[in-house]
Nucleic acid binder design. Sequence first.
DNA 1: CGATCGTATCGTATATCGACGATAAACAGT
DNA 2: ACTGTTTATCGTCGATATACGATACGATCG
Lengths: 111, 111
Amino acid sequence: MVRVRPEAQKGCTAGETLSLPDVAWAEDMAKLTWALAHPARVRIVRLLLNRTSCICGEIVEEMPLAQSTVSQHLKILKETGLVQGEIDGPRVCYCINKEAMAKLKKLIADL
Amino acid sequence: MVRVRPEAQKGCTAGETLSLPDVAWAEDMAKLTWALAHPARVRIVRLLLNRTSCICGEIVEEMPLAQSTVSQHLKILKETGLVQGEIDGPRVCYCINKEAMAKLKKLIADL
DNA sequence: CGATCGTATCGTATATCGACGATAAACAGT
DNA sequence: ACTGTTTATCGTCGATATACGATACGATCG
């Protein structure tokens, strides 16, 4: 995501303030925060947290968005790991991945 | 940022799970998380937190990005309120806005 | 005043996001 | 098997993000 200029290599090998592990850490953090970087996704996460367990396409009902758009946001939340979805007959139940949530909270808290 | 379809009005006035305050809250959250939704900005924030007080364009030195790009990211961080910048002679000193950071941390922790 | 240094902004190109409608795919029930 | 329901994916379009170089701005120093 971040293009690295050639001359930046020098700095990295010389023990800079931001060493290589920090880069990975920053990307981790960015990935997780990006998952919440849209009101719709924030609302979806909040919704799932409210109902303790999981929900299916009721989410669509609660959102002022088209079904396909909600599905896209759910896909993003799944890809970042914040949300899990398991098939339950004809529908799909989504629920929060508590580990991922904990990781996010810890990352932010430890800032 | 979120386009609201006309028929969604009905749901909002009927006391939905996601009432209007939640919408504002979600946008608040999204705005703050979006500030950290890029590795470069995460690294800048980390950098500023490390050095307790403020820094100027040393940030550019630490980043593998062009000066103008870093300036853009700093602008975003300023707009979201996470970072403050004050002119110090010929250069500009940036520092973390602790209140905004606290707000972000609280929002995430209270999820 | 003019030169220089540090920073911000402009202009631009490319990539990605976010939204939608339409369509496909998976499953349950008749 | 057919049908209806639920969810995912595709294709598209406008808006925005991200990156850069070039340039403008502002302050300090000679």
